[in-house]
Design a protein around this nucleic acid. Structure first.
Lengths: 347, 347
DNA sequence: CTCTATCGGGCCGTAAAATGTCCCAGTTAA
DNA sequence: TTAACTGGGACATTTTACGGCCCGATAGAG
């Protein structure tokens, strides 16, 4: 059975926030010994009135004692804080880890969900939900959103049914970031883009490019007017959401020949994302021959959301983050812990 | 460490209510299969609009699926209900037991707090809190409230600091139900009445009657005008809150002589309350010689709140409830389970 | 086919709660 | 004494919750 708190959080989405808030207050009162409302409010950076509502409740629950010279934790409150301490450390652990990773790679936001999506389908689903929520929180109507393929992105699309993102996004466009890359149908960028669009009532356009293009075919496709049109749309996207893969695994999945794989390995390719292969240091060491977003488009895109989870993805995520153009990272605990190792090793 | 649930009930009492509500909804949807909003609202006796807010949230959480022909629980929702079932039974368990006891003895309200107040001081404190909360919820300004002695009532008084019972009760009177009964100072009715009054900003009057009155002394006290005055006030009380004791224990505590104790035992005295001794069938088999509430006063009092806890009190509580003039019972889980045995045995 | 009952969802005015921001009387320490 | 605190009361304003109604869609009965 999963953690009771995680189960409850499905029914009470703001349970964690409230729990955290009240615990922090109680904890702070414990540390301060005897403290007044205003002092406490400023040290917790809350407004006086909000704090007051909470302390009234804590008092009604008998967890604190309020006297004329301030508030003090009661024995019941002390007992509760001590019992809750390990639980809260575990919970806040991820929050702190989020902040650590955010700082280390200079990201705008990091979201970590508990668990390992590699070993548990439920966690993978949660990762998808978190990705969907995050994506929608950054999208405004009228945006163009480029998405890549991959099983994680497929899960994001799956979980995207009318989350609390407000009204329908009627003039929003979902497009694949790059052409077809030899994935199975369900996890192709095209499929995912169209699914996402349908889920939130948005529009979509597809880019059908055969896999394993010859140079000649590529050149002629580039000239094609219809293709140019959609590629232009893709390049003007405001948001990118993309998965992150292990380089070798992706190469094998795309059925590259043995020679190319050895080349990649020689070049130190660790990670793959939007058709580019990255080295441990975040340098692009190889790229797929297909249409869509180019590096310069990626660099100037306003919001880039990377999403990947599982312990084995740690190094790959690190490599892509080193590339330095990510804004948001959505991952799971297992991968985040690997990232933490990389960060600590770099010091 | 205590159960996480108990901790949450202390820190998040409001959220636990919504947890129960949402669980009930989800559970009902599960049972109903495919059900419409209005149908569901009436079967849960909620207004349509409130239910809607909840189902919107459940949908956003992916726990139910909403289609044109109704709502259905999703696989995630089903999974959650199953995982939460034992937890919720624990939460709801006492509610059902409350109702069972309420019906069995024809009471107006039953409050059961988890645990055994006999073996845990924390539970005893909680029992006091519950008693205080219950008492205040039935009191209106202007009432006269008669209280008895006993350690449980002392705890009620202790926990009565300005609970959310609204404004101060300036014209409310707290009085002892009967004269001093040979208890130690802290748990005497007089002490408790005055403490309660001070806690909620009410008035109080005391009744000082020495223990172990001789018949002569009793007769002269009855004639005393000051005493008559306060006794009149006591007899006009609108609310009584009283503890319930084991007959033999009380007799010993009051230092009755061996003969009286054997008499009590011969008469089948099981319980004691407001100076009266009750048999298993709820008949009064003996009474203390002191002033204050008489049986006829008790019978016409509007609201009588009995409070007692601990496994050993089960039979005593049963006896007093059989007496048939209780309205409210506040007890703990251990005593309630004993009561349940009595109820089941009576069938 | 039509009719009817029921579905989810949109909408709106009001009631209630949450919140920010004061002030006040009391207490303590200097 | 003063100055700096305290908790609690009060109030205007914003935000949210709520009740109640209507609407088009849809499925099943006839």
């Amino acid at each position: 059975m999963r953690n009771l708190l995680e189960i409850q959080e499905q029914l009470l989405p703001d349970l964690m926030n409230t729990l955290k808030r009240r615990y922090s207050i109680l904890h702070q009162i414990k540390l301060s010994g005897m403290v007044g409302r205003r002092t406490l409010a400023s040290s917790l950076s809350m407004t006086e009135r909000v704090l007051r509502a909470e302390t009234d409740l804590l008092k009604a629950q008998g967890l604190i004692e309020i006297e004329t010279l301030g508030m003090r934790i009661s024995s019941a409150g002390l007992c509760l804080v001590e019992e809750l301490e390990p639980v809260m450390n575990e919970l806040f652990g991820l929050v702190e880890l989020e902040e650590k990773i955010r700082q280390a790679y200079g990201l705008r936001k990091v979201v970590i969900i508990p668990g390992d999506s590699e070993s548990s389908p439920e966690v993978k689903r949660e990762l998808g939900r978190a990705g969907a929520r995050t994506l929608l929180s950054f999208v405004e109507d009228g945006d163009t959103i480029a998405v890549t393929g991959g099983s994680t992105l497929a899960e994001v699309a799956e979980q995207m049914s009318s989350l609390p993102g407000g009204g329908p996004l009627r003039s929003t466009w979902f497009v694949p970031a790059r052409g077809g890359l030899g994935e199975s149908m369900e996890i192709q960028a095209n499929t995912i883009a169209s699914k996402m669009a349908k889920r939130v009532g948005a529009e979509y356009r597809l880019l059908h490019v055969p896999d394993l293009l010859s140079e000649d075919a590529y050149q002629s496709l580039v000239q094609d007017q219809h293709i140019q049109e959609i590629v232009d749309v893709i390049r003007r996207c405001r948001v990118i959401i993309h998965g992150i893969g292990d380089a070798m695994e992706m190469a094998r999945r795309r059925k590259l020949d043995e020679g190319s794989i050895q080349n990649l390995q020689a070049d130190g390719a660790i990670a793959e994302s939007f058709g580019y292969y990255f080295s441990e240091e975040g340098e692009v060491v190889h790229k797929m021959l297909t249409l869509g977003l180019r590096l310069e488009d990626i660099m100037r895109t306003e919001t880039i959301i990377g999403i990947a989870g599982g312990q084995g993805k740690g190094k790959a995520i690190h490599a892509v983050l080193k590339f330095g153009h990510e804004d948001i990272l959505v991952t799971d605990e297992a991968a985040a812990l690997e990232l933490e190792k990389e960060i600590d090793a770099a010091i």
